[in-house]
Every structure is written in structure tokens, then in C-alpha cells.
Design a protein around this nucleic acid. Structure first.
Length: 397
DNA sequence: CCTCCACTGGAAACCTAGGCTC
DNA sequence: GAGCCTAGGTTTCCAGTGGAGG
């Protein structure tokens, strides 16, 4: 029984807004102090402090799983430094290499912070990577810039594109003088060092810090603190905060997830016209986060991946590569789009598996060969609803 | 124990769309 | 305009393979 529009409006008018300051629970929010990260904050500050005297700090590596406060600590210290320094030649740059997606764009993002002179700017594409490195180096040298570059998710960069950039930057000391470049690497993966050239490694890891996951107790306190700023009093009860902390903490002490969960639970409660967050809001919020993730993942897929996903959804109880390819080719013909090779389909299947949209595992059927056993991991109706938004699909079905 | 299927998945080449320099 | 460069996605080629059925 869908609730009437009147009911929704009535609730909206009656219910008081629960949020005072929603931003305090947004992912970008940098709080005025970072609980349980004092040692790390201090250490980072100490390592970077020489830059205030104009000398080059050590390169630094920060390790820890997602949501353990690495990025927050780095940005926090950077912000303080910027406020303290008051020196136009000091450049504090932050680049997330996964969002930048690629060697070239990581460099281009970095270059934006440097304010390159006209004619030396970095276009979207076209330059050799070496040329970009040269332009950046030249800019640092000529303007005597003191640069701290934070490379977030540096493991991603290294895993996919190797350590060439790091190599050229860590070994470029003299070429930059009298300016310099110090690198702060942030990694989710403790093993990422294994892929580094030993020379890069010794230079990059002059200093290292490990960020342990938050315990459930710590998460609870973080949430309590944020909730006090974000919500009206008594909106987020200790019990509600406990549940959020427990649900996010059971995974791996991920503070970001815990905060997202609390924010969305608050939005759910507000929408339902409640005066506070209860268990059911948090459960709904948790479900919503999952649906949103899937929705967004499907939406941002290229047409071909969508077509393959759709083809997978046509089979109840799973299928295999050969069978799927047949179905997929037929679908392409009907939709009037290009048909890719089976090899490519196999690769895309791997991508979809990585996204958690399908499960594709190799199985051997003995004499009858090996193949991938493929199964859709998401609801068929969600998929169809999301795919219908794509004009290329419109009336598929 | 051996065969042999129906693929897998690595490697390299190719294509497109961008941009550089000379 | 020629001759380079880049990123990404794709195709082509092919050696490799887990294990049920012989």
C-alpha cells in the first residue's frame, strides 16, 4: 500500500528537521581534531615541519585500510601547514591517483596545483609522459617552489602503471634545485612496496606510518562526536550510534562507512518524519547504500558491458561463456550495436565480477572443457530498471 | 593413467581520438 | 602536413589447462 502524497507532505511539515549541520557527516568534512589519530597527526606534522624553514622534508608513506583516517590526517596537516606557512612558493598538492585514473592524468592533476605558465600547461592528452614530467620539474626549479605532493591511493597507481613517475620524481633532486618536491604516499595495500624498484622504495619510504583500523569503541566515539555537531540533540541515541559503529566495524573498522551509514540513517528518519534514528532507519540506510552502489555501478557502465550484463540476466541459475556469447551476439543484433569478440567478452566479464555485479568463476567440466560459470549477483528488476534509462536499451526485452 | 574439450588468459598488434613539434 | 607522442578499447593469435570420461 503506497502512502499518499498528502501523508508525505503532512509528515514533512510536522517533522522537524533532524540535521543542524549535515556537512559534518559528509565524506569531505575535515573535523577540527581527529580522535584516536593524535600520534599519527603529530608524526606527520613533525616529518613535514622542515618545510616551514624552507628545507625539504623526508618522503613519507602512510599505510592503512580504507576509512582508517589516512587521507583525513594528511589533509588536516596540510591545511594547518598552509595556514602557518604564508609563503607563495609553498605548494601543497593532493591528488587521488585512483580518481585521476592513470599516470598521465595524475600528473596533469598535480600540474594544476602548480599554476604552470601559459604554453606550458598540460593538455588533456597528447604529451609524452616524460614531457609532462619535464614541464613540472622546470616549473618547480624556475620558480623555486617548495612542493609537497600527496599521492592518495598510490598503490593503485603503482599496480596499474608501475613506478616510473615515482622514479623520475624521487630521483630528480638536483634537477629541481633550488626548489624541491617531497612526496607523501597513501596506500591501502600493505604489500604494495613489493612492486617498487628498490631505489624508489628506499627514497619513498624514508619515513613510514601505519594506521590501524578503528575499533568498534573508537568508531562509536567518532560517531558520537560527529553526531553532536550534525544532529539536533537526542536525534542520534547512543543505541543508534552503537548499531552504526557495530555494523561498520564488523567489516574492518572503516570510519567512512560508519559515517555514511549514520548520515543516510538520519536522512531516512527525516524523510519518514521520525524524531530520532532507530534501528530500522539504520537497516534501511544500509540497504540503500548497497542499492545505490549497484545502481551507480550499472549506470556508469559502457554500453557493451551493459549488454553483456543484460545477456547474463536472461539465464536463470547461471550460464557459461559459450552459451552467453551466443545470447549476447543475438542481443547485439537486435539492439543494432557492435558485437565484440568472445575474448573481449571474457575480459569484460572479469570487470563485472570485480564490480560484484556478476560472479564469474572458472570451472572445469572435464572432457567437456573449461569455462566460466557465470551468475548474476544482483536483482533482475533493479538491473532492468536501471538499464531502461539507457537510450540504447529502451525497448530491449 | 592419459586424452582432449572448451575454453582461459597473456601478449602484441591495431584502431581511434586527441595533441605535440618541425 | 608529416611524423611523432599519448590513452583506451579492441582484435588476433596462441600456448596452456583441470579434470571427467575413457
Amino acid at each position: 500500500m503506497p502512502e499518499g502524497i498528502d501523508e508525505i507532505f503532512r509528515r514533512a511539515k510536522e517533522g522537524k528537521p533532524l540535521f543542524v549541520n549535515r556537512d559534518a557527516l559528509s565524506p569531505e568534512f575535515v573535523p577540527s581534531h581527529l580522535p584516536f589519530r593524535d600520534p599519527q597527526t603529530r608524526a606527520v606534522a613533525q616529518i613535514l615541519a622542515p618545510i616551514l624553514r624552507g628545507s625539504k622534508p623526508s618522503n613519507l608513506l602512510l599505510y592503512g585500510k580504507t576509512g582508517t583516517g589516512k587521507t583525513a590526517v594528511a589533509n588536516y596537516v596540510l591545511a594547518k601547514l598552509k595556514a602557518e606557512a604564508n609563503n607563495p612558493n609553498l605548494v601543497l598538492a593532493y591528488v587521488n591517483t585512483r580518481l585521476a585514473d592513470g599516470e598521465y592524468r595524475t600528473l596533469a592533476d598535480f600540474a594544476r596545483h602548480l599554476d604552470l605558465s601559459k604554453g606550458k600547461q598540460i593538455p588533456l592528452t597528447g604529451l609524452a609522459v616524460g614531457e609532462v614530467v619535464d614541464r613540472i620539474s622546470e616549473n618547480i626549479r624556475e620558480n623555486k617552489k617548495k612542493v609537497v605532493l600527496v599521492l592518495d591511493e598510490i598503490d593503485y597507481l603503482v599496480k596499474l602503471f608501475g613506478d616510473d613517475i615515482l622514479y623520475s620524481f624521487t630521483r630528480s633532486g638536483n634537477r629541481l634545485s633550488p626548489g624541491f618536491l617531497a612526496i607523501v604516499g597513501i596506500s591501502n595495500d600493505l604489500k604494495f612496496k613489493e612492486g617498487l624498484d628498490p631505489r624508489v622504495l628506499s627514497s619513498m619510504s624514508e619515513e613510514e606510518l601505519v594506521f590501524p583500523p578503528y575499533t568498534v569503541d573508537e568508531l562509536r566515539e567518532i560517531l558520537t562526536e560527529r553526531a553532536a555537531v550534525a544532529f539536533r540533540p537526542s536525534v542520534a541515541s547512543p543505541a543508534a550510534i552503537n548499531l552504526c559503529a557495530a555494523m561498520a566495524g564488523s567489516e574492518h573498522g572503516d570510519a567512512r562507512r560508519a559515517i555514511d551509514l549514520l548520515r543516510i540513517a538520519g536522512e531516512v528518519a527525516e524523510r519518514d518524519g521520525l524524531h530520532g534514528i532507530d534501528d530500522s532507519c539504520i537497516r534501511k540506510a544500509s540497504d540503500k547504500m548497497e542499492v545505490d552502489r549497484v545502481d551507480e555501478a550499472i549506470r556508469s557502465l559502457p554500453v557493451q558491458n551493459k549488454a553483456i550484463l543484460y545477456a547474463v540476466s536472461r539465464f536463470d541459475g547461471g550460464t557459461n561463456t559459450g552459451e552467453l556469447y551466443l545470447a549476447y551476439s543475438g542481443l547485439c543484433r537486435r539492439l543494432g550495436i557492435e558485437t565484440l569478440t568472445q575474448r573481449r567478452l571474457s575480459g569484460i566479464l572479469g570487470d563485472l565480477d570485480l564490480l560484484g555485479l556478476v560472479e564469474a568463476s572458472v570451472v572445469s567440466k572435464g572432457r567437456r572443457g573449461r569455462t566460466k560459470k557465470i551468475r548474476l549477483l544482483i536483482g533482475r528488476d533493479t538491473l532492468e530498471k536501471t538499464l531502461a534509462e539507457d537510450p540504447a536499451f529502451g525497448a530491449a526485452g
